[in-house]
Simulated assay, not measured.
Amino acid sequence: MTDGDRTGPTAQAPLGGSVALVTGAVGALGAAICRDLARDGADIVVHHLRQDDEARALCGELEGLGARTVSVSADVTDTEEVAAALSRAQDQLGPIDILVNNAGWMESRRLVDTDLAQWRRTMSVDLDGVFIVTRQVVPGMLERGEGRIVNVSSQLAFKGATDFVAYCTAKAGLLGFTRALAREIGPTVRVNAIAPGPIDTPMVTPHATPDWVHARTRDSVIGRLGLPEEIGPAVTFLVGPGASLFHGQTLHLNGGGVLG
């Protein structure tokens, strides 16, 4: 399908006619972001890593919300896989207008128990992957004169955390990437980030005893885990028409876990 063939939801939808790529889309957080983008009128490229069944189910759900969808599998650390996947996606839906860099890797490991390969695994997914995907879509955004990017960082980039030195380092690096890229390609392409606190997802559920939750939320104002559906609206705001003054900013979606 060519760009001229693109059709979107109603003109009243704030993201109507836009194509959004969400990496790591089939996880709880990514899926919630996809749903909110679809509700606001965007068509969705559902990126995953060999999770075909989950991606198929999510696409069906998003199509029920009125979005056109395409599912693509690629390792974000592999430049050739990413290029091929995005080529297929754009052939079907058209150019990427919105990029949400949500795919990530988190591993609990003390620094003294971390070897270089483990360190590089975290950096490869959380930083290299963002670079590779962003580098793939930015030229088209600049050529068309418009684009919006949201990078998913973490409150741990600000707070730090025992056993997560590599992850905290990568997520802090992502904020530097966001600010520098905002200056480099803005205002043509609007680049921002979000920094969620601990979110209640299936990954967390097995560990979420009252003591575990208290330990991770005692510094927050709300004193509870966030919910995936509380994250999507901030993303749709940042890529929507109401955020024209937001460039290189980070929204702290952590219930007051980080203030300032």
Rank of each mutant, 00 (worst) to 15 (best):
D219S: 13
E81W: 00
I132K: 04
A208E: 03
A161G: 03
Q12C: 00
A57N: 11
T10M: 01
G242N: 13
A20E: 05
G129Q: 11
A170I: 05
I199L: 08
D163Q: 09
G41R: 07
V204K: 01
F177L: 14
V137F: 10
P210R: 09
Q155Y: 02
T69S: 09
D52V: 11
E229R: 12
N101F: 09
Q155W: 02
T122E: 06
N192Q: 03
A180V: 14
P187D: 07
H252W: 02
V152A: 03
R135N: 14
A74L: 10
T122P: 02
D113M: 06
A166E: 03
Y167K: 02
G160H: 05
G160Q: 07
H214V: 00
R190D: 02
L29A: 00
T77M: 10
H247K: 00
G41F: 08
A166S: 12
A20P: 09
G94P: 12
A215C: 00
T134G: 14
G8Y: 09
V204G: 00
T209C: 06
T10W: 04
D211V: 07
R121K: 15
L49V: 06
G257K: 02
V112K: 08
R144N: 01
H214G: 11
G94F: 06
V239N: 12
S108N: 05
N101V: 07
T250R: 04
Q136Y: 02
H48Q: 10
L251Q: 01
T7E: 10
L93A: 04
A157M: 07
S220T: 15
P198Q: 01
T10E: 07
V150F: 07
L259C: 02
A11F: 08
G30N: 06
P196Y: 11
N254I: 01
A180N: 14
T201F: 13
A25L: 11
V221L: 15
L245Q: 08
T201H: 12
R39K: 14
